[in-house]
Design a protein around this nucleic acid. Structure first.
Lengths: 103, 103
DNA sequence: TTGACATGTGACCGTTTGGTCACCTATGCT
DNA sequence: AGCATAGGTGACCAAACGGTCACATGTCAA
């Protein structure tokens, strides 16, 4: 779980996830297009994403295809984000109700 | 937004958020209790959390009180996490429906 | 007012991280 | 076979990060 948070901390890696979200199963060289760095930088970031479980990969001939895996993000949502976000939503609902009762 | 992701990347900072979730409005020295580091380390982490907007603070005499601010986490959920998590949930729903149709 | 307490600042230091490169392996194509 | 292409490894470097400390400021209470 810590690896997922750390992986999400870098904007380049979030951009890579977005690129895979736009088109899943891209190769390394396809992902390098549009990334502001060399192939090696992208390789390192992809490795971090894979070790965090956010991306899975499959070799096809001399190409390596990369796929999004949304499960870890879902886990972050279920076990962590909702804990903080939902009480706030509840507070907002209460505030709304209060305002409607006392306009 | 990048500051929020970076702030969440450190386990010590997530622990601080948990401590404030358990009891909001704690002082610095109260938060140092239970943290595996000195006051200065905790101060640095709290500064990162404040700059990310995840924690707000108010001075009260010689004490500084710290409060959780769940809004940035809510924003992460709305603008980012749900984008990845919800398609997965939808895929699960489809899978479930498919299995029920073809048992 | 004096002393204890809560917090703040700046320097410092070892480790991690982001990025590049020289060089290498493996696959496809002709 | 021979060459171009896709990907991989290890070393390297500057910058950021996590953590500590000496020292300083402000505040309460006797």
């Amino acid at each position: 779980m810590d690896l997922v948070f750390k992986a999400l901390a870098d904007p380049t890696r979030r951009d890579l996830l977005d690129a895979l979200f736009a088109q899943d199963g891209q190769t390394l060289t396809a992902l390098v297009e549009g990334a502001p760095m060399t192939r090696f930088g992208v390789m390192k970031h992809l490795k971090v994403l894979e070790e965090a479980g956010l991306v899975t990969s499959r070799k096809d001939g001399r190409e390596k295809l990369h796929f999004l895996n949304p499960v870890p993000i879902r886990l972050i949502h279920d076990r962590w984000v909702s804990k903080y976000a939902e009480p706030w939503a509840a507070a907002l609902t209460e505030l709304k109700a209060h305002l409607e009762e006392n306009p």
